[in-house]
Write a protein that binds this DNA or RNA. Structure first.
Length: 297
DNA sequence: AAGACGAAAGTGGTTGA
DNA sequence: TCAACAACTTTCGTCTT
């Protein structure tokens, strides 16, 4: 049995009532011990995190106490350019009021530089692309944090923001085990594949990121659901892939081609039949490559 | 007739001198 | 910087159901 199944079964965090992803309905849930969270292998949605206790740690015995003890303000988030800590001065009073003067002051100082302006743009781009790819908030957060880091290390100046943000999202997806293909990234980005690859390369180098090469397993759940294949076939395809990896049949091969072939074989074995053409269209590799991988498997 | 198969040539990226 | 190289794609004729 594959790694994933093992993880699922032994996962101490997985409670009985969580069986499928509330976001996309996929039943392929992964338990990440390192981060102590359960997330969907299909869309990456974090379903359960046990590290963070969202409830108050204090007890209130009457409403007055509750009001006094409650912390103020929205939770801090990295996806807002000043981490959500700024105070916005409300509008509404006349020119002469003190409020107006404060507003004027805020306008002048709040967005201080073009650097900050471009940071705001970058965050909105990360959000836009992540939405288009149906990526969950935790991945957007991670990409935003990396962008801030890149900014602190002065890696942005002189390069295209679009390239950097796309590459960061691409990297983060892989780190979370919900890999997207370069083609999919390009489709939602405003720059080409070359630019994305270039940015990716230097970001990994200069931010000292650890990105393991993509595993075919990362692609299988999503491709299966796009092909309308059921859970048993998905599981079968994952098994085939893991066996292939153990037999070192995957060395030097493109992971997407392997995933495509594994799905093709698993579908036939499971009594469902999908044309090579269909799989080729969804996965973005040619029928010839699917055939070649099939032969090897 | 549709789909699968596989050979051959072309393409773009990686690697090592 | 350039050539060698492997993986992948494109194209196309043939085989199978």
């Amino acid at each position: 049995m594959g790694k994933m199944k093992e993880k699922e079964n032994n996962c101490p965090l997985k409670t009985e009532e969580i069986t499928k992803c509330p976001e996309c309905g996929s039943k392929c849930l992964i338990c990440d011990y390192g981060k102590a969270e359960i997330y969907c292998a299909d869309c990456g949605m974090v379903i359960d995190e046990k590290i963070v206790d969202l409830g108050p740690e204090w007890r209130a015995f009457d409403p007055g106490q509750a009001a006094a003890k409650a912390r103020t303000g929205a939770p801090m988030t990295y996806r807002i350019h000043d981490k959500g800590l700024s105070t916005v001065i409300s509008s509404g009073s006349g020119r002469s009021s003190g409020e107006y003067k404060l507003q004027k002051w805020q306008r002048r100082t709040h967005i201080v530089s073009t650097t900050e302006r471009s940071f705001i743009f970058a965050l909105s781009e990360i959000d836009r692309m992540a939405s288009a790819l149906k990526l969950p908030v935790n991945i957007r957060e991670a990409a935003s944090i990396l962008y801030r880091e890149a900014m602190d290390k002065r890696l942005i100046r002189g390069r295209s923001i679009e390239g950097i943000t796309t590459a960061l999202l691409y990297i983060t997806c892989r780190q979370y085990g919900v890999s997207r293909t370069l083609e999919e990234m390009r489709d939602v980005s405003r720059v080409g594949e070359k630019e994305i690859s270039r940015a990716r390369k230097f970001l990994i180098r200069d931010l000292d990121l650890k990105v393991s090469p993509a595993s075919p397993v990362d692609y299988i759940p999503r491709f299966c659901s796009e092909l309308g294949l059921n859970d048993s076939i998905r599981q079968k395809a994952i098994e085939i892939t893991i066996k292939a990896e153990e037999a070192e049949l995957t060395n030097g091969r493109g992971p997407i081609g392997i995933a495509a072939a594994a799905i093709y074989i698993a579908a036939i074995a499971g009594g469902v039949w999908r044309k090579q053409r269909e799989i080729s269209k969804i996965t973005g590799v040619t029928e010839v490559t699917i055939r070649n991988r099939c032969r090897e498997l």
